[in-house]
Computed example of a mutant assay.
Amino acid sequence: MVHTPVHASWTNQIEIFFSIVQRKVVSPNDFTDLSEVRDRLRAFEDRYNSTAQPFQWRFTTSDLDDLLARLDRHTLDQQEESSARLSA
């Protein structure tokens, strides 16, 4: 059993890492055997660990608030248009 904290933003980082592995190591799927997969993954791990940098997040909480407000306005506009069409 693995304890996962309520705030699980670390899962996003894991998903990003596996996405990178998928794009840079596993695809295309042209392996002849599992030892080739292992060797390629280990080589990638060594290279990645020596050059890895923290992710620079550019999407701030203020950006999120703005996006959610725009989505709320859009949803409200759509509901009003739909109501107007039904009553016409």
Rank of each mutant, 00 (worst) to 15 (best):
D77F: 01
S9D: 13
T75N: 14
V25W: 05
A88G: 13
S27T: 12
I20Q: 05
Q13G: 06
F55D: 11
S82V: 05
T60N: 08
W10T: 01
R42Q: 14
L86A: 15
E45I: 08
R42I: 06
R70A: 09
T11M: 08
L41T: 03
R40G: 01
L76D: 12
S27A: 12
V21L: 03
R70L: 12
Q53H: 09
D33F: 00
Q79G: 07
F55R: 12
W10H: 10
M1E: 13
Q13F: 03
S9F: 14
W10Q: 03
F17I: 07
Q56H: 00
S35Q: 11
T11V: 14
H74M: 11
E45A: 09
T32G: 11
T60A: 06
D39F: 02
F17W: 05
S35W: 04
F44C: 01
R73D: 10
I20P: 01
T4Y: 03
V26R: 05
K24N: 10
A43Q: 09
P54H: 07
I16M: 00
S9V: 09
S35H: 05
Q53E: 15
F31T: 00
A52R: 15
L68S: 04
S83N: 15
V6T: 11
W57T: 04
S83F: 12
D30F: 04
D77Q: 13
F17R: 03
A84Y: 13
T4D: 01
S83H: 13
